[in-house]
Design a protein around this nucleic acid. Sequence first.
DNA 1: ATGACTACTCCCAGTAGA
Length: 263
Amino acid sequence: MPIRVATWNVNSVRQRIDLLLTWLKECQPDIVCLQEIKCVDEAFPRLEIEALGYNVVTHGQKTFNGVALLSKLRFDETKSGLAGDDEDAHARFLEGMVTLKSGVLRIACLYLPNGNPRPGPKFDYKLAWMERLINRAAELIAGNLPVVLAGDFNVIPTERDVYKPERWLDDALFVPEVRHAFERLLAQGWTDTLRQHHPDETIYTFWDYFRNAWARDAGLRIDHLLVSPVLLERVRDAQVDSFVRGWEKASDHAPVWLELDPA
DNA sequence: ATGACTACTCCCAGTAGA
């Protein structure tokens, strides 16, 4: 069986628990990165998810942010938080390591700051957070091991990844500074697997709740699954489960996944 | 468009998301 690794910004796990369980059963991912769980660790609906055969690790926070890792394989180790700023109280980063038959696989689950409004402290925080991510990613890639960097990056990589680029030129998701920082990350050797598997396709992962965006397909591609060089040759597919965005009480983000060769 | 929609919070108008 191939290994499936997914990421989904659920926009409150307590609001989305029924949809999450339905999607887990349908998609059958082996490893899942969740963002915006919007609850503390104790409030995470751990039992329902464990009942489907997942090991669960959370890095939660009251009200905002919060990330979690689910894995059908047991975690050898996990680590929460992104190095580089001891004052940073946002729960946005969580790493885990599992062992496949072929060897170790490391997964980093991230929720990159939005950065709006710009200019301002939120935008400065986003840029600083990206520098910290770039530093950690450099360490990970230097190990020459299989790594997936997955999550809600809040970065629109190119004008093909947004329904109307001209409307987003001044937005913190699309300004040149942010896109360049994302390009610097990729230049370390990471591959954007969703784009690689859909080179000519208009493909989105987020549709605003506003303005009937889903029905108009006015989307953004901001949720990404990046893989390290040694993992690239094992990636067989990458997809967006966009149908989930059409469900009743949907998150504004759809799940994204990639499939690796059998372990 | 200080907009719309959705979710959160010391229950309810203010903050945040993207």
